[in-house]
Simulated scan of single mutants.
Amino acid sequence: MTTTVMTATARPGTAPAAAPGFEDISRVLADRAPARADLDKPFAPLEAEAHRLLPALAALRHGIGDTPLVPVPSRAGRGRVWLKAEASNTSGSVKSRTAYALLCGAVASAGTPELRLTEYSGGSLAVALAEMCGHLGLDLHLVVPYGVSERLQTALRRQGAQVTVGREGTGFLGSMDEAVRVAEREDRHLLLQHCAAESAAMHREHTGAEIIGQLSGYGVEPVALAAGVGTGGSLAGTALAMAGAWPHCRPVAVFPSEAVYGDERAPDGARRMSGTGGLGHGIRQPLLSAFPEGYFSYTTVAYPQALDAMRHLRREHGISVSGSGAGAWLTASAEVDQGPPGRNAVAVVASRGTIEEWEHAAGI
């Protein structure tokens, strides 16, 4: 089956002053949006300070990172795509890195481990945060989008997290908006993953550095890096690191066709690659819009395409990937297959995929 990957027309920019009906999150995103220089700040000193204040954080570090890089053929077989398989992180996804970075940033900036936290998530980050905060004894209130499975909500509560569900019909943006109100009403620190420069910094110093070391051992020079975008932290940080080693490696942000970058439409609950997507009302991910125009290429993958690619990778190569990982593989494949044979690209694979994604894949 031939899979077409369409290029989105949205361009980087700044978030509107206030999306209608979502004034709270619009205000906070604008107030806390990082500057480009913030993404270059070192993560290691912040991490060391967090470990000093909360030594138990250091124990969590051992289950995060050093994930494998698995080569598979590109879609047309003209080159290779190296899959950065993040499922081997302690919580089963790339969001282990994000959760750890967020907690290090919160503890270090507050100067104390005595924190009451809140955050929004539709899945993997919620799982990682709930596990880590349960281990650390931190008070966590999570806000999930309307329609999130009871299975996930029950799992989060079992870890000791409070769980609130966003308003019906407001999509992921609704959970973000509600998290702002929870933080202000309950005097909690809002982690705000979409503005977390420390997340990009950790990916620069660790995820990107890992890929450089792994590919250099094989003598491989990649022509592209592809990653599905939720916040953009993993793509931004990894791209910064890889640009230092391979200046001509093109970073590509992968969005679902159902919710493109900077989507002007109101948010909805349409099925799409899990953990990815535009937020609606023209809001753009601050971690991406901190970069100059043209730094990233933007590509979209429709959910049925991602599901088909998930099935293909499992059937042909024995590897289970998330929808966003499948979309990244398709995108990286397009980069190598359109050029001379024998080229290489990297795709970040966030996880092995959710139960719901595999149920949908089985039904196509």
Results as ranks from 00 to 15, higher is better:
Gly111Pro: 10
Leu102Ser: 06
Ser88Pro: 04
Ser109Val: 10
Glu114Met: 02
Val81Asp: 00
Ser124Pro: 04
Arg116Lys: 15
Lys84Met: 08
Ser121Arg: 09
Leu117Lys: 08
Glu119Ser: 05
Ser88Tyr: 13
Gly92Thr: 03
Arg97Met: 09
Thr90Tyr: 08
Ser96Trp: 07
Arg116Trp: 08
Val107Tyr: 04
Ser124Phe: 04
Leu102Thr: 09
Ser124Glu: 06
Lys95Ile: 03
Thr118Trp: 07
Gly92Pro: 04
Leu125Thr: 04
Thr98Leu: 10
Ala85Gln: 14
Ser91Tyr: 00
Tyr120Lys: 05
Gly105Val: 06
Ala110Ile: 11
Val107Arg: 04
Leu103Phe: 04
Tyr100Ser: 05
Arg97Ile: 09
Val94Lys: 00
Ser91Pro: 01
Thr112Gln: 14
Tyr100Asp: 05
Gly79Phe: 12
Ala108Glu: 09
Glu119Tyr: 02
Gly122Lys: 11
Arg80Leu: 14
Tyr100Lys: 05
Gly79Leu: 10
Thr112Ser: 15
Glu119Gln: 01
Thr112Ala: 15
Glu114Ser: 11
Gly105Met: 07
Ala87Thr: 12
Ser109His: 13
Ala87Arg: 13
Ser91Ile: 04
Ser96Pro: 08
Ser124Thr: 09
Glu119Asn: 01
Ala110Glu: 11
Gly111Arg: 08
Ala99Asp: 15
Pro113Gln: 04
Lys84Asp: 08
Lys84Pro: 09
Ala99Gly: 15
Leu125Lys: 00
Leu115Cys: 05
Lys95Arg: 04
Asn89Glu: 01
Ser91Asn: 01
Val94Gln: 02
Val94Ser: 03
Val81Ser: 02
Leu83Phe: 10
Ala99Lys: 15
Leu117Asp: 06
Ala85Glu: 13
Ser88Lys: 10
Ala101Tyr: 01
Gly79Ile: 10
Ala85Cys: 14
Gly92Gln: 03
Gly105Phe: 10
Tyr100Asn: 05
Asn89Val: 01
Ser109Gln: 13
Glu114Lys: 09
Ala110Leu: 13
Ser124Trp: 05
Leu125Asn: 01
Gly111Cys: 11
Thr118Pro: 03
Glu119Pro: 00
Ser121Cys: 12
Thr112Cys: 15
Val81Asn: 00
Ala85Gly: 06
Ala106Val: 13
Lys84Asn: 07
Ser88Ala: 13
Gly123Met: 07
Ser91His: 01
Ser93Thr: 02
Tyr100Val: 06
Val107Gly: 02
Ala87Gly: 06
Ala101Gln: 02
Leu125Ile: 03
Ser124Tyr: 03
Thr90Gln: 14
Leu115His: 05
Val81His: 00
Ser93Cys: 04
Leu117Phe: 03
Gly122Val: 13
Ser88Cys: 09
Ser93Ala: 06
Ala101Pro: 00
Thr98Ile: 13
Thr90Leu: 15
Leu115Trp: 07
Ala101Met: 02
Gly123His: 08
Ala101Ile: 02
Gly105Asn: 14
Ala99Tyr: 15
Ser124Ala: 11
Thr90Asp: 14
Val94Leu: 08
Ser93Phe: 02
Lys95Phe: 04
Tyr100Trp: 08
Gly111Met: 12
Ala87Gln: 12
Leu83Pro: 06
Leu115Ser: 03
Thr98His: 06
Glu114His: 11
Tyr120Asp: 13
Ser124Gln: 09
Arg116Asp: 11
Gly92Leu: 03
Trp82Arg: 07
Pro113Asp: 03
Asn89Arg: 00
Tyr100Gly: 03
Ser93Met: 02
Val107Ile: 10
Ala106Pro: 12
Leu102Lys: 08
Ser121Pro: 06
Gly105Trp: 11
Gly105Ser: 15
Cys104His: 14
Leu115Tyr: 05
